[in-house]
Every structure is written in C-alpha cells, then in structure tokens.
C-alpha cells in the first residue's frame, strides 16, 4: 500500500514536470516574440543596408556601424525632438500633479454636497476618446495663434491624463487618516495650510505613479502632435521619427538608430523601475 502511494506520487510529479517543461517552453517562446523586434531594432541600427537586406538578416552586426547614430543625431534633428518631448512631457506631468492633487483634496477631504458627483464627472475622462476633442481644440489653438508651440501640446496632454491622476490620487489620499486633518484644524490650520503641510508631504508615492503614467502618455502620443505641430522646431519624438523615416527611405541604418534613440531611455528606466511602472498601469484600471 505504502509502495503504491509513493509510485503514484512519482507518476504525479513526473506528470507535473513534463507539464512544467511545456509551460516554460511556451513562456520562453512568447518572451522571444516580445523581445525579438527590439533585438532586431538594436542590431539593424548598427548595420549597413547590405547586411540588413539579406546578407545578415538577424545576426549581430559584422561591422558595428556607429556612424548610423551620428547621422540620425546630426542630420535627423533628433536632439531637438528629444528636448521637445522632454519639455512637453515634464510640463504636462507638473500640471497634472498640481491639478489632480488639489482636486482630489477638495473631493475626498473637504465636506460639501456634490463631491461624489464631481468625482464621477472627472471620471468621464477615462472613457472619452481624446480624438473627440481634436477639432475644437485645433480651432481654438489656431485662433489663439499658438499652434506650433509647446503649449499646444502641454495643455491637451495634461487634460487627458487628469482623470487618471485624480483616480490615482484618490487611491492614495483615502489611505491618509482623517485624524491628521482634524489635528491640523485644531492647531488652527485652514484647508490650504492643511493641504500643503499635512497632505502633500504624504502623497509622494502617488507622485511617482502619476508621473510615470503621464510621462508614457505624453512621450508616445502621436495624433495631436501630428496635427498641431508642423514646424520642426517643435516636433516631438513620435512626429520627428515619422518625418525622419520619410527622409531616409533608402537607408535603414539611421532610421534604426533614431528608433533606438527614442526607445532607449524608456527601456533603461524600465529596467530599474519595472515594478513601479507596472504598478502605475495597474493602479488606474484595477481601482476604476
């Protein structure tokens, strides 16, 4: 009897082992499917057309052609696009943090009649497709004469991340004990001092989450940037890359280099902060 159970266990565990092997094979294959395009991008950014077009399709470059990066960087206007993307993203992040923290404070900590409705109103922004506002915003910006400026992207980007910002802030702010506010009130702080002295310092973890979320939205946005910006002085990376690939239709190496330049900072940050970045994506969707 005892023997029998041992055998059964062995059979069971070997079955688990083969199933595990199959599982790992599938997981690894899927990992390759995800990694391969990025690997290919890195390698072809360092190759000549000859290699890319057939002699060395997917291998490492034979002769590491760093000059591709030089041509993307110098003739392709990449530094400009890069700086523009940084300016636009960082400004939008600051705006979102500022506006969403204040609004969340009013909604979750101050007592007034319509706070729940106000929250629901802001949450509409999670479902509204941003494209829907493109025409009037375009016309307004044109009439104000600020198409082709950083502002024309900063305000729309901030507006589109605002709902998520408020959602994330709410998640963090309801965790802060109400006793703290009351203590501050008793010490004679009004709502503004309470906000600045008690709440803001405790919201640091939310800032990281909001910043990451907003950054990714802004850094990668194409439609608005494409429509609002035609002057290459103000183009952001996504639009710039589109323009660049139009210039280098025959030479693939420099395009590859430009793609790597646009992607690399993101990947570096991801390697060090993958947990935090993943959290910021989950935070909104799961609580919503």
């Amino acid at each position: 009897m005892a023997n029998f159970t041992v055998k059964e266990k062995e059979a069971h565990s070997s079955k688990i082992n083969t199933r595990n092997v199959v599982l790992y094979v599938i997981l690894t294959l899927w990992a390759i499917v995800n990694l391969f395009p990025v690997y290919w991008m890195f390698t072809f950014s360092l190759k000549t057309n000859e290699e890319i077009f057939g002699k060395n399709l997917i291998g490492l470059p034979w002769d590491w052609k760093w000059s591709n990066y030089a041509s993307a960087w110098h003739t392709g206007n990449m530094p400009r696009y890069f700086i523009n993307s940084v300016i636009v993203s960082v400004s939008a992040i600051v705006l979102v943090i500022f506006a969403s923290m204040m609004a969340t404070y009013a909604i979750t900590r101050l007592k007034w009649k319509f706070s729940a409705q106000m929250n629901a109103f802001f949450m509409l922004g999670l479902t509204i497709p941003i494209h829907a506002s493109i025409v009037p915003v375009f016309i307004t910006l044109r009439n104000m004469g600020i198409l082709n400026s950083h502002f024309s992207l900063i305000f729309p980007y901030a507006a589109f991340s605002l709902s998520m910002g408020i959602l994330i802030c709410t998640g963090f702010m309801v965790e802060i004990p109400k006793d703290l506010d009351e203590a501050a009130y008793i010490d004679g702080c009004g709502p503004f001092r309470t906000f600045g002295v008690v709440i803001v310092p405790l919201m640091k973890p939310a800032l990281a989450t909001i910043s990451i979320y907003t950054f990714l939205q802004c850094w990668n946005e194409l439609m608005f940037a494409n429509v609002f910006i035609s002057d290459s002085k103000f183009k952001t990376l996504p639009v710039g890359i589109q323009a660049l690939s139009g210039q280098y239709t025959t030479e693939w190496g420099p395009i590859g280099a430009a793609l790597v330049i646009a992607t690399f900072p993101m990947l570096i940050v991801y390697v060090f902060m993958s947990g935090k970045i993943q959290e910021s994506f989950v935070a909104g969707a799961v609580k919503g």
Partner: peptide
C-alpha cells in the same frame, strides 16, 4: 470659507478638464 476653498482647489483641474475636454466635445 469652505465653499471658497472647494472652488479654489477644484479650479485648476476644472479649467483644464472643461476647457480641453468637455467644452470641445
């Protein structure tokens, strides 16, 4: 005072949200 505070705290978010999302729609 409380309503004034609520209004001021909501102002930046409302301006952005209504100005760039709701009014345009």
């Amino acid at each position: 005072v409380n309503y004034l505070a609520v209004f001021l705290f909501l102002l930046p978010a409302l301006a952005l949200f209504i100005g760039i999302l709701i009014a345009p729609i």
